[in-house]
Design a protein around this nucleic acid. Structure first.
Lengths: 214, 214
DNA sequence: GTGGTACAGTACCGGCGGTACAGTTGAAGG
DNA sequence: CCTTCAACTGTACCGCCGGTACTGTACCAC
């Protein structure tokens, strides 16, 4: 009652979203009931529908929140890596190691990616939600592509590969690594895969041994 | 006693499984209603529960079927690749190209992987189902690991990497590639990622350029 | 004191997963 | 020809869940 944050406009809404995200990642969207969410948050059904018109709007808010947070984490890591090395390749390699460490330091197996979860429920969502997820992946691609382009200005590609594909592969390894971790019940598998992607980047860009050529 | 007849003992069951697989991949497990399955197959609810004790048993049958079929496809590709090259590395590279072509030739975006779908619904399933999915991934790993081990007998690893991780990466790229394809609505993204994995294999194993060293 | 925000309470609807059980059909086997 | 059994159909019912509708209310700001 005397709590100050009680009237905070986002508090209850955020609590619902937090509970919903955990539940959706563990049980899928349609496996998550509104009743269990309101029970966990401690509100009434009316309270829920005050914040979200229906379950689809919850999904949309969930994705918007996830994409935003995820983007901040990724750009935060890249920014931090940039302070540690001027070299674009080394900076990227540092960022990948930090990402791997982030996954490694999780208390349990990675809870999952909302975007991936949505992709496996596509028919349940409207066009807007699917547009959001697609856009999110393209934003991630663009972020990484920018890094790769900067690298190519100082390093040669050892083989002919498409840089968009190479950029996409980070998301691919993350999503695939999460599934692998979940499937075998070994949380270390995700950071391991991320480090393998890092090895790929090293192999693709690093100079051809120490031998001075030409 | 009852021999497998051309009639309906397995036919109806298979029809249910086929419809269920498509529906689960598109809408998730709990998003798939029994009513829609029986409507599509054209049987009654009693007919469904004659074949499956409950929805959980449908899930189990779905996974067993998927894992079996998937294993056959993969080992089929490897066997065919072996007839095309004696060299273990080249055979593996051929197999990866065939796998990429398989994905490329699909009429639409890859429908999805049941194992991945299950991983994003873990809390809905019992221990047996989760054991099955984990085992499936380990079988795939073992299949590929065998290939990689054979390669290492004739080729040197250019960098120090764990072969189990490298083997896992095929599943990772497949699952992640499927999600990428679905997210951006571009079916070509999955085969592209598979070819990128192939490039990684090439880089990791192929001899250090043509320069004879030492 | 008026209005808006942020809920709680109550009642109700239809769909879905699941149960229970009785009845039907067609083919194989003795 | 009769029995048996697999493979269903039909009917009735339960409880949970998503969703709707509407009323009520505590609290804060102006």
């Amino acid at each position: 009652m005397a709590e100050k944050l009680a009237n905070s406009p986002s508090s209850t809404r955020q609590q619902i979203l937090r509970a919903a995200e955990a539940a959706v990642l563990a049980k899928g969207f349609s496996g998550t009931s509104i009743d269990e969410l309101i029970a966990e948050v401690g509100i009434s059904k009316s309270g829920f529908f005050y914040h979200f018109r229906d379950k689809a709007m919850l999904a949309q808010a969930l994705i918007e929140r996830y994409v935003e947070e995820d983007g901040e984490i990724l750009s935060g890591i890249f920014a931090e890596a940039d302070t540690l090395s001027e070299d674009p390749l080394h900076s990227f390699l540092i960022a990948l190691k930090m990402l791997a460490k982030l996954f490694e330091d999780l208390p349990a197996t990675h809870p999952g990616c909302i975007v991936a979860s949505v992709c496996y429920h596509e028919q349940l969502f409207d066009r807007e939600v699917r547009r959001l997820t697609g856009e999110a992946v393209l934003i991630w691609r663009a972020m990484i592509r920018t890094r790769l382009d900067r690298i190519t200005q100082q390093y040669q590609l050892r083989i002919d590969i498409d840089l968009d594909d190479l950029a996409d592969m980070l998301s691919v390894v993350a999503d695939g690594g999460i599934i692998l971790s979940k499937a075998v019940g070994d949380k270390s598998r995700l950071p391991r895969q991320m480090l393998l992607y890092r090895d790929f980047i090293r192999l693709v860009f690093e100079p051809r041994a120490t031998a001075a050529e030409r």
